[in-house]
Design a protein around this nucleic acid. Sequence first.
DNA 1: GTGCGTGCAAAGACTTTGCACGTAC
DNA 2: GTACGTGCAAAGTCTTTGCACGCAC
Lengths: 159, 159
Amino acid sequence: MKLDPIPANPSDDPFDDDFDIIEPLCAVFRRALKGEGLKYTPERARILDTIIRRDGMFEADQLLEQMRSDGFRVSKATVYRTIKLLEDASIIQRVLFDRDQSHFQLAYGKAANTLLVRMDTGEVEAIEVPELIALRDKLCAARGLKAEGHRLQIFAVGE
Amino acid sequence: MKLDPIPANPSDDPFDDDFDIIEPLCAVFRRALKGEGLKYTPERARILDTIIRRDGMFEADQLLEQMRSDGFRVSKATVYRTIKLLEDASIIQRVLFDRDQSHFQLAYGKAANTLLVRMDTGEVEAIEVPELIALRDKLCAARGLKAEGHRLQIFAVGE
DNA sequence: GTGCGTGCAAAGACTTTGCACGTAC
DNA sequence: GTACGTGCAAAGTCTTTGCACGCAC
C-alpha cells in the first residue's frame, strides 16, 4: 500500500457535526487529551469515530483507507500519531498477532486481553475470562513476581 | 543495528566439524531440507546450532551478532532465509510479543505457548501451564467451537 | 498570539529480493 | 555438472520524524 498524498476532498468542510455521534468515548478522549495539554482536533475526533464505527480489529492503513473513502482528508502521519494517543489513553490497545502489521481494537471499559480468533472465518472476539487473573497471579507469585497484565489469544474453528 | 558487510573471518575455514554436536535437531532439519530438495549447508547447520546453544528466545540480528562474535561469516540474508526454513520445518516458532521485531524460539518437541515476560529486566521465560488447555477448551466448547491453539503472555515485575 | 497539530517528504528499522558467483549433491 | 545457496546491495513495508504552515485554545 502506497498512498501518502491526500486526494482532494469531496466535501468542503472536513469538520462537520456528526463526527461525534458516539458521545462517551469522544468525551473520554477529550478529557485524556486535555489532561496532557493536548488538543481535540477534527482529525482526532474523526479517527476515533471511524474506529468506533468499524467496531472490530483494525490496522493503521485500513483506517486511513476507510476515512478517505468516507471522504475525509487525513494523512498517514496523523493516523499513526492519533493511534498512539488513543493507546496512551487506553481507549484502544495493540494486539500483535500478525507479524506484518500492528492490529488494534477498542479497549475502553473492558480489560479485553483475551481474544478468541476464529481461524476459519477470521472473526476476532474479545472475551472475558476472570479465571485467568487468578491463574496468572498464582503463576507469578510462585516465582516471586507480581503480575502486571496478560494477553491471551485462543485460536479456534467452528465444528 | 546496521551491519551488513561481513567482517573478515578470524578462522580460515568457516566449516569445521563441531557445528552439529547436538545431533537430533540437525538430523531433523537435514531430513526436512532433503524432503524439499534443498541442501544442508554449513551456514544452515551453524545457524541451527547457534539457536540451540542460545536455548531461549532470540531475534534475527541477535543471532547474526552472536554468530559473528563466535567467528562465523554469515550474511543477514542467509540468517533470515534460514529462519524461514526452520519455521517451515517446525523446528522454531515465531513468537510476536514485541511490535518491532519477530522473536523466535525452539519449538521442536514442546508447545511453548505461554511466556512470562519480566517488564523490569526484559527476561522472557517460556512456561508450561497445563490448566490453560482445559480452560481454553471449555471456553471454545461453550461457543460451539474447537480450540486449535493458544498463546498467553503474562507481564510481570519482581517485587 | 502561542503552542500544539497537520501534511508532506524523507528517514528509520526490520525484512525480502535480484544478481553473480560459489558449492552441495 | 547442475541446481540450489550465499553475500551484497538495493528495494520493500510499516512506522516515525523534521519542517513549515495552520488552527485550537
